[in-house]
């Protein structure tokens, strides 16, 4: 896990998750806007391909936990579902810790089909955005591609 750019690292198993540069920038901007609190949101799409990014409200007022506003999430889920899509990614930020799922992230990961994106601002000048699948309490990092 020492590569400067996640795209340079080969990560086993899963196909790369295609996340356009513009969306990465949106997530980083959201993380910076909400720091020191954690930000959160989802990306809708089809067949695993990203479509629309939805920044959502973190109900938790602290700096080390997130819970996506349940009513907002449901409204977005309905919109995506009615359009024939699915939630392809769930993102949140780690304002001061690495871009790796915490034990709490793993325990509460209820969406095994989605990619979990974590944006770390631990190095403020170099935000680190990484993608994971969390299935049956197991973490698999997934490479990001443009």
């Amino acid at each position: 896990m020492t590569g400067a750019d996640p795209r340079d690292r080969s990560i086993g198993g899963d196909p790369p998750f295609v996340l356009p540069q513009g969306m990465r920038e949106e997530i980083v901007a959201h993380a910076r806007r909400d720091a020191p609190r954690e930000c959160c949101g989802v990306i809708g799409g089809r067949g695993g391909r990203v479509g629309t990014l939805y920044p959502l409200t973190n109900l938790d007022q602290g700096t080390d936990f997130y819970r996506i506003d349940d009513a907002e999430l449901f409204a977005v889920y309905r919109e995506i579902d009615e359009g024939g899509g699915e939630i392809v990614a769930i993102y949140h930020s780690h304002p001061v810790s690495p871009a790796w799922p915490s034990p709490t992230d793993v325990r509460l990961a209820a969406w095994p089909d989605a990619h979990y994106l974590i944006c770390s601002l631990a190095g403020p000048d170099r935000p680190d955005l990484r993608a994971f699948r969390i299935v049956d309490d197991q973490i698999r990092e997934v490479a990001l591609a443009d």
């Binding site: 602290g62 999430l73 949140h92 915490s102």
Partner: peptide
Amino acid sequence: VGVMPAMAGGRSAVR
């Protein structure tokens, strides 16, 4: 009726 697992996590223990 809609059923929706929460999306939550974080660095801290669950609160």
